[in-house]
Design a protein around this nucleic acid. Structure first.
Length: 522
RNA sequence: GGCCCCGUCGUCUAGCCAGGUCUAGGACACAGGCCUUUCACGCCUGCAACACGGGUUCGAAUCCCGUCGGGGUCACCA
């Protein structure tokens, strides 16, 4: 039985690179009919784990990455929080000590630092002298009499080498003599991550440790711990990490400012920001950040688009396949086809996947999923009336492929749901600034707007007749008309807008816009 | 700096293990054009890569060696 795990720290947000790793773990487990678990690595955080964990679990659920064991779902190996498993780690430390694979060390931070500096001065690799290693109770007593406190260190081999057969990278060789005597238990008795991780992987019967490449160089010490404890070794697979747009540095949520200088990244961010404003979200930098998964849910990306994009960031089926359903992903995933080089996150490509999936979404589904956005923006209230739902359906049809994310309904269709449009005053000034334009609009109200029936087709014909009679071009009136009834310069076909809004609303808006433009600003 | 990993268009990648069918394929982005009442879409065209240098071979993106470049990691963080 294949068992994989993803082990997030409760930080309050789900990093896009983390999700990619989790996705690969999940896919590998599902591909082999195995299980995927979630373990919370909170050995060092004393913050409110509950609150910081919620957004992460929420993200997993949103993406449909279900876990067989872990927080909230429990399981036979509970608890799945490292903070609650300290006794197990301490047990393991005692065993390590008993077997001579670890020792108590009484060196102070300063003494250690001095050794490091000396090694550096002599240009040789640092290796702790084990000067304050205590191997007997008498040693301990002597050091403690000096007021020293002990940590527990691994007694790493100083000869030979270790070959790791990484499922992504192949054979990787490490010299034991380059490995430090890492601390596994702090002076206060609490245990550290590497020890905890190995113990948990054993207790949870993890068969495949699939994680980011940054852990590759941590592997020797973990192998050492596992072997010293007599645990069978899991298979290892180190995935390349997700890099910044346009560079090979690891993607970091703290560098948003830097990424925003990149055009593509900025575009996607700005677009999301417009939606966030319409939703009156506090665009807190913490989660409103394209490096954080929350961002995509908030502005209305589809989980399948994000998953598909992330899958192809470091994995490919062949030279052609771009779109895979969840089932196809599971059926085809393999670690052999994972790339070895890190891959830059490209928000524009994600956008393209999103576009694709959005256009695939059935009309009824779009309506259903866009409704909450209108509600949250305060444009519709619950319970949603049937007529509003019908209106939304017409609007969605009219908007067509302009809707790229669910939240786009607010960018393109808000004015259908407001009493008055929010006028873009720059556009008003430009399109309605001239007396002549305003006169034309008013005559439009008296003429074409009286058309019967009040349909897009009829209105278009009436417009043709109107401009011919006025001796102007369609363009001379249509742009001003759009701004007058929608408040903005972008949007669905104008005649569709007019027809959906209805005669009376159009009349009122045109009159109002003309007044607005006719008056001096202020 | 030590150790480890990586290196095909701007980006994601196919091809590499089993050398020739690769004048290197696809996608995103970009540029130009068409369509057009805005925006978006669509259509057409274009731009663009085997990091470099040596080998091996009839033949190398593919194998070997070296160089260079990029990244990761070196905590009583995870």
């Amino acid at each position: 039985m294949v068992r994989t795990r993803f082990a997030p720290s409760p930080t309050g947000y789900l990093h896009i690179g983390g999700v990619r790793t989790a996705l690969f773990c999940w896919l590998f487990a599902r591909r082999h009919g195995g299980q995927f678990l979630l373990r919370i690595d909170d050995t060092d955080v004393q913050r409110n784990v509950e609150a910081a964990l919620a957004p992460i679990l929420h993200g997993f659920r949103w993406l449909g990455l279900d876990w067989d064991e872990g927080p909230e779902v429990g399981g036979p190996h509970a608890p799945y929080f490292q903070s609650q498993r300290q006794h197990r780690y301490q047990q393991a430390v005692a065993e390590l000590l008993a077997r001579g694979a670890a020792y108590r060390d009484y060196a102070t931070a300063e003494e250690l630092q001095a050794e490091r500096e000396q090694a550096q001065a002599e240009k040789r690799p640092f290796l702790y002298s084990r000067r304050f290693m205590a191997e007997t109770p008498a040693d301990c007593a002597r050091f403690e009499a000096q007021g020293r406190q002990a940590v527990v260190r691994l007694k790493m081999p100083r000869e030979g080498s270790l070959v790791i057969n990484d499922l992504v990278r192949g054979e990787v060789v490490f010299e034991w003599a380059r490995e430090q005597d890492h601390v596994v238990q702090r002076a206060d008795g609490t245990c550290l991550y590497h020890l905890a991780s190995v113990v948990d992987d054993y207790d949870f019967q993890i068969t495949h440790v699939i994680r980011a490449e940054e852990h590759l160089s941590n592997t020797p010490r973990q192998v050492f711990i596992a072997q010293a404890l007599g645990y069978p070794l899991p298979a290892y697979a180190h995935l390349p990490y997700v890099a910044e747009p346009g560079s090979k540095n690891k993607l970091s949520k703290r560098k948003l400012d830097k990424y925003l200088k990149q055009r593509d990244f900025a575009q996607v961010y700005e677009h999301g920001l417009a939606i966030a404003r319409a939703l009156r979200l506090e665009a807190a930098a913490e989660t409103f950040n394209p490096v954080v998964v929350d961002f995509y849910e908030q502005v209305g990306y589809l989980p399948e688009a994000l998953l598909n994009y992330l899958l192809l960031l470091g994995w490919s089926l062949d030279d052609k396949t771009e779109f895979l359903t969840r089932e196809q992903m599971i059926a085809n995933f393999s670690l052999e086809r994972v790339t070895r080089a890190s891959a830059s996150f490209d928000p524009k490509k994600l956008w393209a996947f999103q576009d694709h999936y959005m256009q695939q979404l059935p009309l009824a589904e779009k309506v259903e999923r866009m409704l909450p956005y209108l509600v949250r923006a305060g444009l519709l209230s619950r319970p949603v009336k049937e007529e509003d739902r019908a209106l939304l359906e017409r609007v969605v049809i009219a908007c067509g492929e302009r809707l790229k994310v669910l939240g786009d309904i607010l960018n393109y269709g808000d004015f259908f749901f407001r009493e008055w449009p929010e006028y873009d005053m720059g556009a008003v000034a430009k399109q309605l600034g001239k007396q002549r334009a305003r006169e034309l609009l008013l005559r439009f109200v008296e003429g074409p707007l009286e058309t019967e029936p009040f349909t897009a087709e009829a209105l278009e014909q009436a417009m043709q007749a109107f401009v011919a009679a006025e001796g102007v071009k369609v363009g001379d009136v249509i742009h001003a008309l759009r701004v007058a009834v929608t408040g903005k310069t972008i949007g669905p076909g104008l005649y569709d807008c007019l027809a959906i809004l209805g005669r009376e609303a159009c009349r009122q808006r045109i009159v109002r816009a003309v007044e607005l433009a006719g008056k001096p600003v202020g």
